[in-house]
Amino acid sequence: MNRFCEDLTALLPRLRRFARGLTHDAADADDLCQQTIERALKSRQQWQEGTRLDAWVYRIMRNQWIDETRARKRRSQTFVHEDEGMNVGNAAHHEAENLVELGNVGRALARLPEEQREAVVLVLVEGFAYKEAAEIIGVPQGTLTSRLGRGREALLKELGEAA
């Protein structure tokens, strides 16, 4: 097995954890993982040896997820339009059910805005340095730390002593 694929295989457990952190849903996370590996394999010629493979694949996953959430937003907007308010309640109900399963921490994380959640997960769970996390997201380091700070603040407030 060549080096790239070997290293990618070794990354799979971490990639699954990051996917769960981003999506807070097991099925979504599995789909996201699959799409990410597909993309990474397809563009493996673009990866430059000597650079960090993990950061490269995390970036692919993060961008894939952004694309997915945007597509969902468009779909749900269309959906609400067509069926007036009726299904909004259902969707909210479904969302609430999911949140109950998540537990306190998962729920608090799920309520964060996307951009704060990815910053929190990259630094506090995946253990990336600010510089690396900023590169994965594609923002200046100052933007990363400010999102991280706000996300952290919100989590601490929500979880309080439970955290």
């Binding site: 799979l12 457990p13 971490r14 954890r17 993982c33 699959q34 921490v105 506090l124 769970v125 989590l155």
Partner: peptide, 28 residues
């Protein structure tokens, strides 16, 4: 907070990786 977040997500990294993912890489 850091411990709580890791406690929430680390178990995912401990799960066995689905065969489909490893199979995709093996095919490549």
């Amino acid at each position: 907070l850091r411990e709580a977040l890791q406690g929430h997500l680390n178990p995912v990294a401990e799960e066995p990786v689905p065969d489909a993912l490893a199979a995709m890489i093996a095919a490549a």
